[in-house]
Design a protein around this nucleic acid. Structure first.
Lengths: 229, 229
DNA sequence: TGCTAGAATAAATATAGACATAAGAAAAAG
DNA sequence: CTTTTTCTTATGTCTATATTTATTCTAGCA
């Protein structure tokens, strides 16, 4: 019958959909399934591992494999470069630096992230436009203790996000999304009214133990982050 | 040296961080790496596949493996059951059905999703509370043509999300997140003011070709969706 | 009864070898 | 010189087998 791991995945999913294996059900062991599908155990194993990864199954050694009773699936978002995100819609991308300053770490930032108390940060504000309409306001702090070479960049032509992604590798990042009310200032930048709902992303990036950068991204009205799962 | 696939992943990541393999660089073939790490090709292969999955590497047959020049990493969100999400914070979860009606498919909905024009839908509005404070307003439509048994459920005790997740398997779902302004009605439910920024999730769920359900979830002020990557 | 040490088991990982497949590179044909 | 065909190569997948590890189960002991 020669089943590939993809066939097996599809087959298992079908059986779950048809309630042959209802939520919570224990499914046969790998050896048994391998015999049924006429393939090696490793092939079954790969199929199962991927289904675990997708949040469909649970596995425990000795206990076996079961269908998750509450299948909390996992959504994946690709965090794209803004330029690519905009250009993929067919719109023209334009970048502009609003202001740039080197300052001592503000208190709220040093509290939130591990930057030496007397360290310096590069604070940037930038606008990203799609076909000349405001798309995103980027409010970014770069830790100059960790990335001293950032001070030499003027960021007039290339945005900090793009520069960082290309120049500075990172190990971890925290991301959060929320809805905030536009302050007068933010509203001005985004061409909206004060108090308007703004989709806001916050991102902190680390290289091992060092905080590299922190950014707040304010998206203009109508922005939707979408995915499939 | 006996390396596991996890060691190899870590090692490759380190070399990328140390700019031994800068963005865009071609890395050695699997056989070569297997020799270097003193392991089988399959082990290297698994490490590499996972790094591709995480958005660090790109691979092409014949062309080989390279470090992505713009490493757009992939964030993963686990979409939890609200009850679990709330209980995990230590708060008490409470559910309440606000209203329930069986109606003909509204125009905007039938346009958006594939439901027969004269089909019926079950429209529900529910509240989810965390320690008696409003947490989420759920505005849900269930396609009764696809899921007739939903009509027999009263949804007084168990929420539609929880019921659907347990009773109805699905194949695909579209998800989107945005920031919207609270209407007077939504504000009342969430104990906020009209015009406040509301984090909104919209979800459409499919089983093969049939639309099963569509939901809009309005989160109360201060909600943040977070993840690591 | 309750606890613990050990046996049993299923998944997790690793290996060497094989064939399949996509796509770049080189050779042949026009 | 361009197009087409063939060759080559690196990854993709699969197999059969072995070892390791986390857990459950059980039997023996206090």
């Amino acid at each position: 019958m020669r089943s590939s791991y993809q066939d097996i995945k599809a087959d298992v999913l079908n059986r779950i959909r048809q309630n042959i294996w209802p939520p919570g059900a224990n499914l046969p062991g790998e050896i048994e399934l391998a015999e049924e599908f006429g393939c090696a155990r490793a092939t079954v194993n790969r199929a199962m591992r991927e289904l675990v990864d997708e949040g469909i199954l649970e596995r425990k050694r000795k206990a076996g494999t079961r269908v998750k009773s509450f299948p909390t699936r996992k959504a994946r978002f690709t965090i794209p470069l803004i330029r690519e995100e905009i250009e993929s819609t067919g719109a023209a991308y334009r970048y502009a630096l609003v202001d740039r300053e080197v300052i001592a770490v503000p208190g709220w930032l040093s509290a939130q992230v591990k930057i030496p108390r007397n360290g310096q940060v590069l604070h940037l504000r930038c606008m990203h436009f799609a076909s000349n309409k405001p798309y995103q306001l980027e409010d970014r702090w770069i830790n100059l203790t960790a990335i001293p070479k950032a001070e030499k960049q003027d960021f007039e032509v290339i945005g900090p996000n793009e520069w960082l992604v290309r120049e500075v590798p990172f190990s971890e990042a925290d991301l959060s999304f929320s809805a905030t009310s536009a302050t007068q200032e933010i509203a001005d930048f985004l061409d909206q009214k004060e108090g308007d709902a703004v989709f806001t992303a916050e991102r902190t990036t680390w290289l091992d133990e060092d905080n590299i950068t922190h950014a707040r991204l304010y998206f203009s009205q109508g922005y939707k982050m979408t995915t499939k799962l």
